[in-house]
Nucleic acid binder design. Structure first.
Lengths: 162, 162
DNA sequence: ATAACATGGATAGGCGATGTCCACAAATTA
DNA sequence: TAATTTGTGGACATCGCCTATCCATGTTAT
């Protein structure tokens, strides 16, 4: 049970879009070449990011994608939720409602909702809240500290050309 | 991306084993009948619980399963990990190591391990730690508060008969 | 010996993740 | 206007995992 590879595609693609010059876009073709990954599949990922309001698109020649809002307003959780969806990690199908003790409705007095589900979802909320505190901007700043000048320049050059 | 139905099977099965009299076991057949679920599939779930040290088994006539340790020493996370495995929610395949900026090894100075992975796994640890604080014993006590006397007796009767 | 139980392997259907292909719409450029 | 480039959405294929079943085997009580 793991997050899909699409989450990794999304994070690494969005990372390079933080420093995209104003009014400029980047196309799926260039982004997929950058990472050496499938072009058509990456387009599906960006379709999800667009529907989630994380990026915006411009069709036509010289079109492409750009961040739909400031990188400081895009959290880790926003990105994960855009790709993985909003459903919680655990939501039971309520097998307890079918067990032999509930044949008599007068006996069925289980807490509603199921306490197991409640506890797991509360724990999951701790994770979500933590991921909401880290932004794409923060990631960019942290990672750039370790980038050599050569690498920063290489990225800047690449962004100018696409 | 959700926890499998096996997690729900495990929780609801283990719940009824907390009050199992000493030196007594419960078989897969009875447990599957209790919940109205697949007998053969539930046996696979219990196989995982046994390998995780949560239950122990006794083969042969009148054999079956019992808790391998006190319910206060079985945490929510123990149960989930037994069924879902130990791999973290997010572990990237390191696509960054294939991008066009790392053709020159002198430029590749990314933090290792990947900061994205680190942040997500730290957030996941918050969830794990929360789930480790809740035990099967705690669940039993909380749920029993809402059980009517009739239901408690019905469960006790059932446990005596199996 | 026989029946009741757990154990493990083989197998199958369903479903989502990954990935490809194609038709279409929109925008630029010639 | 025509051609090209780009995103959009649907259909499709493949693969692996989840769910589930079946069977062979080992173990124990009666």
């Amino acid at each position: 049970m793991q997050y899909s590879i699409g989450v990794e595609y999304a994070f690494h693609s969005l990372f390079y879009m933080v420093d995209l010059p104003e009014h400029k876009t980047i196309g799926i073709k260039d982004m997929s070449k950058l990472h050496g990954i499938s072009e058509t599949y990456l387009s599906k990922i960006f379709s999800k990011l667009r529907k989630a309001g994380i990026v915006s698109s411009i069709p036509g020649v010289n079109g492409g994608y750009q961040l739909a809002k400031g990188a400081e307003n895009i959290s880790f959780w926003d990105i994960i939720e855009a790709i993985e969806g909003t459903s919680p990690l655990f939501s039971c199908i309520e097998i307890r409602k079918k067990n032999i003790f509930v044949n008599d409705p007068s006996i069925f007095t289980d807490k509603c909702p199921c306490l197991i589900k409640t506890v797991i979802q509360e724990a999951e909320e701790l994770m979500r809240n933590k991921l909401k505190t880290k932004s794409l901007r923060w990631l960019r700043e942290q990672v750039y500290r370790d980038f050599s000048l050569e690498k920063r320049n290489a990225i800047a050059d690449w962004l100018r050309k696409v």
